[in-house]
C-alpha cells in the first residue's frame, strides 16, 4: 500500500501531539490527568517510530512501537496502583499537595 503522506507531516503531527501532552503534564494537578498526558506523549513517540519505519520500509519501527506499548502497559499498571494508594491515604489526587520529598 503506497502512501503519499510526506514524512515531515507525520513528524509535525507527532511533535504537536507531544507538545499538547507536555502542556497537559505541566498544567494539570490531578494525578490521573498527568498520567493521561504521559500516555499522550508516549503515543506521539510511537507515531514517530511507525512513520520512520514506514518511510524506510523497515519493520523495526513497528517492533519499537510494540516495546513502547509494553512499557506503557507496565507504567500504567504501576502508576494506577500508586494513584489508588494515594487516594486511599489522602482522599484526593492533588500532586502539588504531595510535596513531602522537598529537598
Amino acid at each position: 500500500m503506497n502512501t503519499h503522506v510526506p514524512l515531515e507531516h507525520v513528524m509535525l503531527l507527532a511533535a504537536a501531539l507531544f507538545a499538547i501532552g507536555l502542556a497537559g503534564l505541566l498544567a494539570r494537578r490531578n494525578l490521573i490527568f498527568m498520567l493521561v498526558s504521559v500516555e499522550v506523549m508516549l503515543n506521539a513517540a510511537g507515531l514517530v517510530f511507525i512513520a520512520a519505519g514506514a518511510y524506510w520500509g523497515q519493520v523495526d519501527g513497528q517492533s519499537m512501537f510494540i516495546f513502547i506499548l509494553t512499557m506503557a502497559a507496565a507504567e500504567v499498571a504501576v502508576g494506577l496502583a500508586i494513584i489508588l494508594q494515594f487516594h486511599w491515604r489522602h482522599h484526593h489526587l492533588d500532586a502539588d499537595a504531595a510535596a513531602t520529598m522537598k529537598g
Partner: peptide
C-alpha cells in the same frame, strides 16, 4: 519489565496504613 510492573502494582495496591505518607 512487565513482571516488575506486575509485582510493583500488586505491592502498591496493598492497603497498608502503617506507612505514613501524608501530604
Amino acid at each position: 519489565l512487565l513482571l516488575a510492573g506486575l509485582v510493583g502494582a500488586s505491592h502498591l495496591r496493598r492497603h497498608d496504613k502503617s506507612i505514613p505518607l501524608r501530604a
